[in-house]
Each structure stands twice: as structure tokens, then as C-alpha cells.
Design a protein around this nucleic acid. Sequence first.
DNA 1: TACTATTATATTGTATGCAATCCTTTTTAA
DNA 2: TTAAAAAGGATTGCATACAATATAATAGTA
Lengths: 157, 157
Amino acid sequence: MEKVVKTAGDLEARYDCLRLENQLCFPLYACAKEVVRHYKPFLDALDLTYTQYITMMVLWEKKEMNVKEIGKNLFLDSGTLTPLLKKLESKGYIKRHRSKEDERNLIISITPEGEALKDEALNVPSEMSKCICLGREKTDQLYGLLYELLEEFDKAK
Amino acid sequence: MEKVVKTAGDLEARYDCLRLENQLCFPLYACAKEVVRHYKPFLDALDLTYTQYITMMVLWEKKEMNVKEIGKNLFLDSGTLTPLLKKLESKGYIKRHRSKEDERNLIISITPEGEALKDEALNVPSEMSKCICLGREKTDQLYGLLYELLEEFDKAK
DNA sequence: TACTATTATATTGTATGCAATCCTTTTTAA
DNA sequence: TTAAAAAGGATTGCATACAATATAATAGTA
């Protein structure tokens, strides 16, 4: 015979999937915020925000890029990057100028001041790794899983 | 004899720690944003943003909380929560009123409309898990590592 | 070659996030 | 029992994020 009357437990179970502790997204969201927050004191010393910091990071590797390329690297769009790049320019770390071959492209190039900042930033990663005391193995594991997830998202596009 | 003159390779190596691909934080930051972005279509149907959604989530579990408690659960402060809670109130999902025992506390309580929303939200987690196709085992692993990291941060406080 | 589609960036509007500060109420302590 | 400290929220200021739209330049095409 079928059970028709649901107990309180049955009703609760239906909603288990909506419990905060059963979400994968939430610890991801919370961790990301916490890590960025922990960067702040070190980045304050460089007069950079976290987003500005990772933008400088891609420019330290490749001295000239257009906005689109930077956006692809950082998963950011022009709505975020345009004002941010103007700010970095006002700080003297980058230059913005239109490409002569294709006027649509805004070329972002790093200045000597921007290059110099790289040396001041050298201690940031080591300071941060002191905050993320997860151990080498787990850190690597986490890193791998996150990039797998990112690739899944890329594939779905 | 000591090597004094540094090769280009040596110089590069010093800066390896500043490469975007060598950061743990970056995939964390990017994943979190991507996941939240994938929630959008499902949450749009409920007229909720992601932050509003997780706020409703804690209120679905515990019908009455003050702002401080909600903030502790979500890693958010009053600067974020105050306007967000006013918006949820204007949508009719919650009520805001001061505690009579301690006027400092603002009690947030869920309304019948807020409760009803829970049923409409039931399909969101399953739809989202279709997007996060990482496999059960890796998902669990990722979940575990993220909470470990969150606890590290909590300890450091 | 005009006309259309596409591409790259900029702008606008809405919603966070968080540090710093302020205001009120409550608690603590001298 | 008051003055000082602490606690809970609200406000302000700054910096993202991102969707949607606008604009200008280039590419593609009938």
C-alpha cells in the first residue's frame, strides 16, 4: 500500500537541495571574497585593488594588449575594464591609445612605472601563500579542480 | 665559483610567482563569477539576484534572524545587507522590525510570500548542477577543499 | 560601390562588496 | 550610577561586475 500522508521529515527532505550548506557555489563565492579581502593590505601598499592587480599581471607578461584580449584573460568585459583601465592610466602604470591599423582597437601598453611596480609586487604572492595555509598538495588539488570547472564553462559557451 | 651574471631565464624565474597562471586566487575569483553568472537565468525567473537568493536560503532554514546573524552566515556586512534587505522587503518576501528586547537588533522575518518562493526555487539547484558537470567525486572534493579554506580564514580571525 | 553585418569599445543602469564612520542602544566598570 | 566601551545597523564613498544599449570602424556582400 502506498504511503500518502507525508511526514515532516519527508517534507524537509524535498527542500534539502535548497540548504546553503548543500550548495557548491556558496563556498566558492565566499572563498573568493575572503581571499580577495586578504589581498587588500598587501595591495594597498601598491595602491592597487585586486582587479587592478590582476590586470597589471597580464600586462607584466605581455606588454601590449587590447581591451578584448585583457577581458578574455580575466573574464571581464568592457563595462568593468574601461573605467578600470582609465584609472590605471591616471596612476601612470599604463597608456591607452588607438591602433593605427584598426581604430576600433584600444591598445593598452605598460609604462616604465608599470614595469617598476612589478618589483614592488614580488613579495605579494609569498605573503598571500602564508594566509592560504592549506598545504601544498591540497592547494594543487584545489587549483586543478578550479581550472577544470573553468574549462567546463568555457566549453559550454 | 658563484654565478654572478644572471641570464634572461634567471630574471624571468624571479617573476614566475607573479604570473596569472601561478595564482590560486585567480581561478577561485573567476569560477565564483562564472558560477554566479550561470545562476542568472534561473534566478531571473524568481526575480532574485544571487545575493538575494542566498539570503532567502538562510531565511528558508531559520525564519527569523537579525542582520548580524545573516551576515555571519553569508560573510556579508551591513553595508551590503541593509540595502539588500530593504529590497527583499519591497518585494514582499521578508519583514524588517526592531526587537523589543533589544532595540539595536533588526529582526528579519520571512513572509508567506517568501515561504512560497521556496517551492518555485526547488528546481534551481538541479538546473545548476547540470551546468557544473564536474562529476560527483570531484564536486565533493572541491566542496571539501573550499570549506577547509574557509575554516582557515575563520581561524585566522 | 552602397548596404549590411560584425567587431571593439564606451556608456548607462542596477546590484553588489567593503572600509570607514556615525548613531542608538545596551553593557561594563570605575 | 554615570561615564566609557561595546554592539548592531545605517550611511557614505569607492570600486567593481555585468546586462543592455550605443557608437564608430571595418569587413563582407549582393
